[in-house]
């Protein structure tokens, strides 16, 4: 992969500790995968044509191909639809492998920009999705400008932020938590 466009994956560069890291991050049945391909036949990522989809991702994870997986944005295209979890014959819960890889990626700040945007919104406003101009839309249907959520309650918002500050977000957020 590093050899200037030469398309060979060097397994010697694989990192065995990556498998253990993923297991610790929730993919604890990862190694039982026998690559039967059932998830790959149902995964929206595969059906939509992403290069790395669930079956390939699980295999690459098992081989310890940390760099390849963290550099590729495919895991961030997972819909979390959980259909793979529902049908996996080995019950390895493939979606949890995706989550584990995302968690590993976040630790080294290797994720698409919109992931940070969602996190920043979540922390700042209490809502990951926080589009502009919503007040107008709400008015149109006769609802108050702001919904009765954390967005219209400063005291609760601060408490929610305190909760987030007590999670791993405190360590890895690439923006100030204040």
């Amino acid at each position: 992969m590093e050899e200037g466009g030469v398309n060979v994956i060097d397994l010697t560069q694989a990192d065995e500790s990556f498998v253990k890291e993923l297991e610790a991050l929730g993919a604890d049945e990862l190694r039982e995968c026998i690559q039967c391909g059932k998830c790959g036949a149902t995964c929206p990522m595969a059906l939509a044509g992403l290069e790395f989809f669930i079956k390939r991702i699980v295999h690459a994870a098992n081989l310890g191909l940390r760099d390849i997986l963290l550099e590729d944005s495919s895991v961030w295209g997972c819909q979390s639809c959980n259909r793979c979890v529902e049908i996996c014959p080995m019950d390895i819960k493939p979606y949890e492998v995706i989550q584990a890889i995302r968690r590993a990626a976040m630790k080294v700040e290797s994720c698409p920009a919109n992931t940070y945007e969602g996190l920043r919104n979540l922390y700042r406003f209490g809502h990951a999705v926080y589009p502009k101009g919503y007040e107008e839309r709400r008015k149109k249907v006769g609802l108050p400008d702001k919904p009765p959520t954390v967005i219209s309650n400063d005291e609760m918002r601060k408490k929610f932020q305190e909760i987030l500050r007590n999670t791993i977000l405190e360590e890895i957020a690439p923006f100030p938590l204040d």
Partner: peptide
């Protein structure tokens, strides 16, 4: 549910950490 926040969405806390997700 006054003060309720985002669930949180799968691309946010669940992609960071299981405990952080569960806490939110």
């Amino acid at each position: 549910l006054e003060g309720a926040s985002c669930c949180p969405a799968f691309g946010t806390m669940p992609s960071l950490d299981l405990v952080g997700w569960a806490a939110a």
